[in-house]
């Protein structure tokens, strides 16, 4: 089982859209996929038409994997399940703080799911917190959406430095440009230069497209309602790159 997390300290950069679309594509490839909507706003749950509610809330989830098993919902798509968000997830930091080895807690909770899923996507809330640290420790691959600006690059450097300082398990980092506006010279410049200079930046990029905004109207991944769109193609390219980087074996 590989754990892929979409993470950025900033909000509104395309984390949830990436988690939903990549999760959908992984499942369509035949992988058994679980997407965990860790964001109390519950956007990923909304996009899959699943109520953002978990029995016992974040407290039950952090306590044990039994609650996780009972909370998982099947999506409308084969091989793709969702662990929904809950508004109490806003307190996950506090709950983790009370747990033993809080930064390893997520990895421990996901351990029993190894036989059931090939890939787990963690859709993280925008923050630097105990939760995000636990996510970074659990993940095999961090997918970091970046708006192609100089400041975003600085944020990526900070994240990379932080992860490099981990003892033991360190996730790989794969940043990708998101919400790229081809009319902006700076976006084009950064998106062209950086992947050539850095191996932790994906060649694939996700442009700012109305079809991505349509996801919240359709409440579905792009591949389900616009499979031949540019957006669907871009996410497919990103998925292929992420799959390669995560060294995922072909599905059984």
């Amino acid at each position: 089982m590989k754990i892929l997390a979409t993470y950025n300290i900033k909000g509104g950069v395309g984390k949830t859209a990436a988690a939903v679309n990549l999760g959908y594509l992984a499942a369509a490839d035949g992988y058994r996929v679980l997407l965990w909507d860790l964001d109390p706003q519950g956007a990923a749950s909304y996009l899959f038409r699943i109520k953002p509610r978990v029995k016992g809330g974040g407290k039950a989830i952090i306590r044990g994997s039994k609650a996780i098993d009972g909370a998982i919902k099947g999506t409308d798509y084969d091989n793709l399940d969702l662990l929904p968000a809950d508004f109490t997830y806003r307190n996950l930091d506090l709950l983790l703080g009370e747990a033993k080895r809080p930064t390893r807690r997520l990895a421990t909770l996901l351990g029993p799911l190894k036989s059931e899923y090939d890939v787990v996507f963690l859709d993280c809330p925008p923050s630097i917190s105990l939760l995000s640290e636990s996510v970074l420790h659990a993940a095999d691959l961090l997918l970091v959406p970046l708006i192609p600006t100089t400041l975003s690059v600085r944020t990526l450097d900070q994240l990379t430095d932080f992860v490099t300082g981990f003892n033991g398990h360190r996730p790989q980092v794969l940043a990708f440009f998101s919400m790229m506006d081809r009319r902006k010279r700076l976006h084009l410049q950064v998106a062209s230069d950086l992947p050539a200079a850095r191996s932790d930046v994906a060649v694939s990029a996700i442009p700012a497209l109305s079809v991505i905004e349509q996801m919240s109207v359709q409440r579905a991944p792009i591949g389900a309602f616009a499979p031949r769109s540019v957006g669907a193609r871009c996410y497919r390219e990103l998925w292929l790159e992420a799959r390669r980087r995560a060294a995922l074996k072909p599905p059984a």
Binding site: A71, I72, K73, G74, D76, D81
Partner: peptide, 9 residues
């Protein structure tokens, strides 16, 4: 007729 519940429903 075969009725299959989606997980969680």
């Amino acid at each position: 007729l075969t009725l299959a519940a989606v997980r969680g429903y």
